[in-house]
Design a protein around this nucleic acid. Structure first.
Lengths: 232, 232
DNA sequence: CGAGGTGTTGAACCGGTTCAACACCCGTGG
DNA sequence: CCACGGGTGTTGAACCGGTTCAACACCTCG
């Protein structure tokens, strides 16, 4: 999965691909709604999502704000390679499998393969670009558009790692989770989802969403995929 | 300035410091409110702020959202080292001097000095952490706290590069700029600033702000400096 | 002097919150 | 088997933080 993600934004030669496939890792499974990492932790290894869904969030006085969704292939704490402490919490949303890769291993492969080092750096830079877009999303757009934007992003990213083809995509989260990501109350999430349904743009039911009018949804969401820096 | 910024988050040996000081660069001066880079641009060099203030922002249907302030020492487009296109606009707020450093030069120094490479990567990771905090700031906090948080951040970062000692700090921006950063209307910026003044926490006048009650301001802002990952 | 950008204030309005009630589903235990 | 409880989804109604519109003050600069 990590390889898939890296390839979605950077080209890698056969030797590098093989090196990544050969990376040693431990595997672990977590139930839904489980804290995996906490703000303040010091890490000696990185996580890569294999299946399921993780979120990064921070608590602020009243309320928790999700800052990122992590789909398979993502490395939610790749930044700990160079940042001593974690500044956010990472937890599962649904039951998820993750791989642990030791920092020492990652640093070694990055040293031996400059193009892998560049690709890893690039992954963190794309994450950064996504955060910027989230600032815009939350700072400027009304609730319905915010949700629409989130769905557009997830769909695009899932497609990029081959986890969604048509207009349907698994997103096993609750309306509560959506509210924490969009910075709006659960009640309003509910009403905004109904509005999206009413407009014939999207339905979200039982952890799966279907886009019925992609152009219309992207229009409403003010979504342009360029900030994801996919190389397709 | 770049060296100062790097040293504020990462230790560097004498050899590396000397290498950074010896970096060749061109210099340029821009008036206030001038677009320096536009979303979609392809860069062959990076900017480092020497004096003044720059902002990164994105336009979204209606309204512009600032995603970052760049004080002296910052490199607003360091990500272009690995991302082909720029996804945001960068412009001056006030008259500013910037240095241009060629990508090729940066890549060379990074190749020759792994610790500089790590420090540059780390800078982009800290930027990322700041974006996360901004998502929380805009998504969760009421207007007064948002502004308070912005002031706390600027003050902390300015101190880190030696541009603020006491409780006073130059921040040559308008209330309009503050509104675009906090995601609130100008009118409400005005009222929120008055509220901060009324509470005896902070005054902002003529491009300079003074913190009168730092503990109180940080409390209201829900500000903890850990996300800036300063090594002090 | 006039024009344009910024700061300031008032008043009406509205998007979104909050509180509260209820429906529904599912797992648990008597 | 059903009763119960907890988590989630849904809806209504009152409320409020923040927006919008509008007017005016102030300053700077041509």
């Amino acid at each position: 999965m990590l390889l898939k993600r890296l390839l979605s934004i950077a080209p890698l030669a056969q030797a590098e691909r093989a090196a990544i496939k050969g990376l040693p890792f431990r595997q672990a499974v977590f139930d839904g709604q489980t804290e995996i990492l906490r703000a303040g932790d010091r890490a000696t290894r990185c996580i890569v999502v294999l299946t399921g869904l993780l979120v990064t969030s921070k608590v602020s006085g009243k309320g928790r704000q999700t800052t990122a969704f992590h789909i398979p292939g993502d490395a939610p704490d790749l930044q700990t390679l160079h940042l001593e402490t974690l500044d956010s919490d990472v937890r599962t949303v649904t039951r998820s499998e993750v791989a642990y890769i030791e920092h020492s291993v990652l640093k070694a492969i990055a040293r031996d393969h400059p193009s892998i080092s560049a690709a890893l750096w690039k992954v963190t830079l794309v994450d950064s670009a996504v955060f910027r877009e989230w600032v815009v999303n939350i700072g400027q757009r009304p609730a319905v558009s915010r949700l629409a934007h989130i769905f557009c992003e997830i769909m695009t990213r899932m497609r990029a790692v081959g986890l969604a083809d048509g207009a349907t995509c698994a997103l096993p989260i609750t309306q509560i989770d959506l509210g924490e990501a969009a910075g709006i109350s659960v009640v309003h999430v509910n009403r905004s989802l109904r509005e999206l349904r009413r407009r014939g743009l999207l339905t979200f039911l039982g952890g799966v969403f279907t886009i019925h009018d992609e152009a219309g949804l992207m229009e409403l969401a003010d979504f342009r995929a360029d900030y994801l820096h996919l190389n397709s």
